[in-house]
């Protein structure tokens, strides 16, 4: 099988502490891959390394065989990799519609154009509308993103991430802090938008993880201690010792 995103021997230290320790991880094209692990294990840090927010101390990260080291976040994004953030990261003083439209601009080849009027770009506006409908914020279109409710902001966060049509999508705890119904809706939405794409998702909610993931990797203290299909992870002794004591309760 083709791996679309592959990490080999990736390490990251902040000062003297090594937060990510020689991680090897292959994400296969088209799969939905969950990364789980206790708080502070380094999941968000791993995302920050992949997306160019932090630079790797050691090792290599390749997207479709292309080395990402040294690339800026915007360059990596242009290669078709998008991410969402654990802490909502939106454009609070822009309208909801504008948030989505901005997220579409680069992928629709507008680049830094100052000779197109956005209002006149029919396709751009239609696609923005479509994304809004998809994430269920059609009625909030003209509101400032900053005044949305928490769950709505999480949806918008997701919308900004997927709008550009990236084919590798990294989500960081997309349903954390949501009520049960909201979380269920979000999971359905994530399934829909990740169709035909490669999805990596960091999530604490085991229900969500086992519902969503084709494969799961377990990150503990900056090391991947196991990767496999959900059944394998459930039965893995190392995982159970390190982490999953609570899994059976949650799963029941």
């Amino acid at each position: 099988m083709n791996s679309i995103l592959s990490l080999t021997g990736v390490s990251k230290s902040f000062d003297a502490t090594e937060i990510i320790r020689s991680v090897d991880l292959d994400i296969i094209e088209g799969e939905r891959h969950a990364i789980i692990g206790p708080n502070g294990a380094g999941k968000s840090t791993l995302y920050n390394l992949i997306t160019g927010r932090y630079s790797v101390s050691q090792g290599s990260i390749r997207l479709r065989g292309r080395e990402l080291a040294g690339l800026q976040p915007f360059e990596i994004n242009r290669l078709g990799l998008a991410r969402s953030f654990q802490v909502t990261n939106i454009f609070s003083n822009l309208t909801v519609f504008e948030n989505i439209r901005c997220a579409l601009l680069w992928s629709m080849q507008y680049r830094y154009s100052f000779w197109h009027l956005v209002r006149k770009q029919k396709q751009l506006n239609e696609e923005s509308e479509q994304v809004l409908q998809q994430i269920g914020l059609g009625a909030r279109k003209d509101m400032l993103a900053g005044v949305l409710t928490y769950a709505e902001q999480r949806s918008l966060e997701l919308g900004i991430t997927i709008a550009g049509g990236a084919d590798v999508i990294l989500l960081d705890e997309p349903v954390a802090g949501m009520s049960h119904t909201e979380a269920d809706q979000s999971v359905e939405l994530i399934k829909r938008i990740s169709e035909g794409k490669t999805l990596v998702v960091v999530e604490h909610d085991m229900g969500v993880v086992f519902n969503l993931a084709d494969r799961i990797s377990v990150l503990v203290y900056g090391e991947i201690i196991a990767t496999g299909v959900p059944e394998e992870i459930r039965n893995d002794i190392k995982v159970q010792e390190a982490y999953l004591g609570s899994l059976d309760e949650q799963d029941a």
């Binding site: 800026q72 915007f74 939106i90 454009f91 822009l94 504008e98 601009l105 100052f114 197109h116």
Partner: peptide, 27 residues
């Protein structure tokens, strides 16, 4: 008119949240 172009709109986005703008493809 400049404020109504992609460069003008994305300037607002960068003003609000420069970091996020980098993750939607803009330097």
């Amino acid at each position: 008119l400049f404020s109504q172009t992609p460069a003008g709109r994305i300037a607002n986005a960068v003003r609000d949240n420069p970091e996020r703008a980098e993750f939607i493809g803009y330097s």
